[in-house]
């Protein structure tokens, strides 16, 4: 059981490391905007920007859906 006397400070050291990482992330500005990145994740990656859609003039009904 005496191992706890060593393991516990060691565990706390890890916790301290996590806190240090957190502080680093905050200072880097990673938490400055919590809303936009949540939207950004939804965007498809588009390697080619000039992608021609087959249906250029989509039927209007598609847009008239409830919003």
């Amino acid at each position: 059981m005496e191992l706890i006397l060593v393991l516990l400070p060691l565990a706390l050291l890890f916790a301290g490391l996590a806190v240090a990482l957190f502080i680093w992330a905050v200072r880097k500005g990673q938490f400055d905007d919590l809303e936009t990145p949540a939207m950004r994740i939804l965007f498809d990656d588009e390697p080619a920007p000039k992608k021609t859609e087959p249906a250029k003039n989509r039927p209007k009904d598609e847009e008239k859906g409830d919003r």
Partner: peptide
């Protein structure tokens, strides 16, 4: 520009 995806995202 072929950016029709805008409308899908917006809807």
């Amino acid at each position: 520009l072929g950016f029709d995806q805008y409308y899908r995202l917006r809807d």
